[in-house]
């Protein structure tokens, strides 16, 4: 019973984290059909930015709780800068080329950014752990959980809810849906597709950086943290259906809960289970649980 509760809560925390990290990737794919390998770099930049700014904030001796604002600020700054640089400076030159070629372009961007991180921050670890303890702990029937972890669930709900509202209830969301549905037609109807692309990519980038920023207090920020995140985010997005925000929710829950279950019950299959589920979904339903298929006609 206790194990079940632990699996549930650990699983939800982990799912929330996965969702925050992966939803930007899914959004970008949905609108632009770009599988962005550099998403891992955005995550890493978010984490480094957060650790740096939190460090500065604490050195200045301001009210500790305000440091959470630094996480948001770091994500916004890093995501916006990198998002604009990548989209305007690189991706727009390869729009219309083969999807696989664009994957390679983002892979190249990922490789470059990995070293840019080392050039900016060096190879020694950074920490933002001060934040992690600030919120204290909660005991739930004999199990102790960090409030910071639990807050991630709230953050994921908030991000998911906001995105849902933004897509389904705003003018911008309608433009987005139009572009997703038929890019050429949208263009013909006078929608500025270029701008929709830029905005989407920057938003996705900010979300990626946000994932990193909120992870920073939980880990030691070192070179290479983005590498594993890419493939986890891929797994989430593939399972849910590439480009589907509800899919990202389901994908995160499936990966998060099954990993938590594996960790508690059968640690040997912890990693296997994630990629096993990913392969299974690809095999049974390649478009993902929430994805749509296109029909071939001649």
């Amino acid at each position: 019973m206790l194990t079940a509760l632990a699996i549930l809560i650990d699983g939800l925390v982990y799912s929330s984290w996965l969702f925050i990290v992966a939803v930007g990737l899914s959004l970008i794919f949905g609108v632009m059909k770009i599988l962005n390998v550099a998403h891992g770099s955005l995550y890493a930049f978010g984490a480094y930015g957060a650790a740096t700014m939190v460090g500065i904030y604490f050195d200045a001796g301001w009210a500790p709780l305000g440091s959470f604002a630094m996480l948001l600020l770091a994500a916004l700054v890093m995501g916006a800068i990198l998002g604009i640089v990548l989209e305007r400076g690189l991706l727009r030159f390869v729009y219309g080329r083969d999807e696989v070629i664009i994957v390679l372009v983002t892979y190249a961007a990922f490789l470059i950014l990995e070293d840019v991180i080392k050039l900016i921050w060096g190879v020694d670890p950074y920490y933002a752990a001060q934040l992690y303890g600030l919120l204290g702990m909660t005991e739930i029937s004999l199990l102790v959980f960090s409030n910071y972890d639990l807050a991630l669930i709230g953050l994921a709900l908030f991000i998911g809810g906001s995105l849902w509202l933004a897509i389904n209830r705003t003018r911008w969301g309608k433009l987005l849906l139009a572009v997703i549905h038929d890019r050429e037609m949208s263009q013909a109807f006078g929608i500025n597709v270029t701008r929709v692309y830029t905005v989407t990519f920057v938003l996705g980038a900010v979300l990626g950086a946000l994932g990193g920023a909120f992870t920073a207090p939980m880990i030691s920020v070192t070179p290479g943290i983005g590498v594993e995140v890419i493939i986890l985010a891929f797994a989430v997005v593939v399972i849910g259906g590439m480009g589907s925000v509800p899919g990202a929710v389901i994908g995160s829950l499936i990966v998060g809960l099954s990993r938590a279950a594996a960790v508690h019950l059968l640690p040997e299959i912890e990693l296997f289970v994630i990629y096993g589920v990913m392969s299974l979904v690809l095999i049974v339903r390649p478009q993902g649980l929430f994805g749509k298929t296109a029909e071939k006609r001649i």
Partner: peptide, 15 residues
């Protein structure tokens, strides 16, 4: 520290 930077730039140039 610039090994991957070289790789990435080369890949971009190639593409």
């Amino acid at each position: 520290y610039t090994w991957q930077l070289i790789l990435g730039s080369t890949l971009l140039l190639l593409i």
